[in-house]
Nucleic acid binder design. Structure first.
Length: 157
DNA sequence: GCCAACGTTGGC
DNA sequence: GCCAACGTTGGC
């Protein structure tokens, strides 16, 4: 049982979109970065918990929580010439990109802003808060998970 | 929209 | 295998 943070641009796919999906479930596809790919393929497991993070938008921060409902499998969009994520160098025999399925769990009453996350002294190791970081799938420790959940719920008041 | 930081590509 | 050029990410 591990913890993760996945980034998404809410204009493209938000936590509300996830909640609105059939069975509140969606493949987390379109990841085209090798380090993130390796996590999706090798480490993200069914039952793991995921912070859904909204980037490149008005309210940047953690929007809520999802659960991994299927572990790593080849991302279909890489084989689809119509898809923006099409990769001509990949093949079904030797897939290059992987995805997992995520299922909506919870939307925070208020988004937990990046600014606030950065202000928490114990949250300094997570790649998210380090300058220039572009990793879109990253591990979160149990300790970090608990601190961030607590901060998100405190924000209700 | 700006721009710094980063990952990837391709010439050599 | 180096590294400059390029395209993309992402906060502000």
């Amino acid at each position: 049982m591990a913890y993760w943070l996945f980034k998404t641009e809410p204009d493209t796919f938000s936590i509300d979109d996830l909640k609105a999906r059939p069975a509140r479930t969606e493949p987390w596809d379109g990841v085209r970065n090798y380090q993130a790919r390796n996590f999706l393929r090798d480490n993200v497991a069914k039952g793991d918990s995921v912070f859904i993070y909204h980037s490149s938008c008005k309210a940047v921060g953690i929007a809520g929580i999802a659960t991994v409902s299927r572990s790593g499998y080849p991302d279909d969009t890489q084989f689809d010439p119509e898809s923006a994520y099409f990769d001509p160098k990949s093949s079904p025999e030797k897939p290059r990109w992987f995805c997992v399925n995520v299922t909506f769990e919870e939307k925070f009453v208020q988004i937990l802003p990046l600014k606030l996350i950065k202000s928490i002294p114990q949250i300094s190791e997570i790649p998210l808060v380090n300058k220039g970081n572009r990793l879109s799938v990253m591990p979160v420790t149990k300790r970090e998970w608990e601190i961030l959940c607590h901060a998100a719920r405190a924000g209700k008041a």
